[in-house]
Amino acid sequence: MSTIDQSNSTESADVDFDPNFPIDGANPYHQPDTQITQLHIHSYFEIGYCFEGSGIFVVENKIFPFKAGDISIINSKEMHLAKSSKGTTSLWRFLSLKPDVLLQGVDLPESFYGSNLCGPQFANILHGVDHPTIEKLLLNILQEIDEQKDFYKVSIVGLLFPLFAELQRFNSSMKSDNTEIDPISFKQVMPALDYLAANFDKNFEIDELANISHLSPSHFRRLFKKATNLSPQEYLIQLRVKMAASMLKNTDKKVTTISQEVGFASISSLNRNFKRIMKLTPKDWKSN
């Protein structure tokens, strides 16, 4: 049995903002397939746009495949990480900001600034093709940051109001879900979640994952279920299927190759679990 060394700390990522205009999005970010191995959280709101590549976003207990043209929505309450498809690097631009400061002076409910854009039912990855208004507003803001023409700050603030209005409309359109996770349990099993997200193509014994979280196997199983509403094995299958879904849409690799690269023992295992989770066969998913 292999020995796994995993830190129990949570990385906190922060940006050195201009206190009078707290927004940043100047630099593109190349997301490799292995760099981020720990769920992290930050003190600001973040909206990302994927220009190239594919992979998965893990947000708390949620797993989303992403591809070029997708938009990520992450507020300051949710731990998350991203991982590109195996052997690839994706290209992102992340708009980091403090909307409550940028949009101050207008009588708006506190939730307008994005504090409610989170939780088990919130979809943190949007497809730009399905949300063209959000996509256009985000890209226009990034363009204003790049060009910095006269009055660009005024223009950015003017674009943020409709952007957050559209995000709130999107949130209101989603079906409510009474499912909740236990934040205390989540924190206790987070080292195992980190490791699974970074190494989902490998197989593990429950004892190994429990050891990472410094828990007994039986206690680990109970807390993992409370934290994610899934068993450790089902969570691992979900990771593999979501990465396979991303690779099917965005690479030319054969299904057999993808099945091996994400960790399934056989193509039949991928097909069975893929159809159960994604409601389509891998072939139909790729063609659709």
Rank of each mutant, 00 (worst) to 15 (best):
P282T: 06
F264Y: 10
S287K: 14
G263N: 14
Q260E: 15
S259R: 13
N288A: 10
I277V: 10
S269I: 03
S268M: 07
D284R: 12
S287C: 09
K279Y: 04
N273L: 01
V262L: 14
N271V: 02
S269P: 01
R276M: 06
F274W: 04
R276C: 03
N273G: 04
T281K: 08
R272C: 00
F274V: 02
W285L: 09
T257Q: 15
W285P: 05
F274P: 01
S266E: 02
P282V: 08
S259F: 11
M278E: 12
S259M: 12
W285Y: 14
D284Q: 15
Q260N: 13
K286F: 11
G263I: 12
T257R: 13
T257G: 07
D284T: 11
R276Y: 05
R276G: 00
L270K: 05
S268G: 08
A265H: 10
N271R: 05
N271Q: 10
K275R: 12
N271T: 03
I267G: 00
R272L: 05
K279T: 05
E261P: 09
S268H: 11
D284P: 03
L270H: 07
A265P: 01
Q260M: 10
F274T: 04
F274A: 01
D284L: 12
I267A: 03
T257V: 14
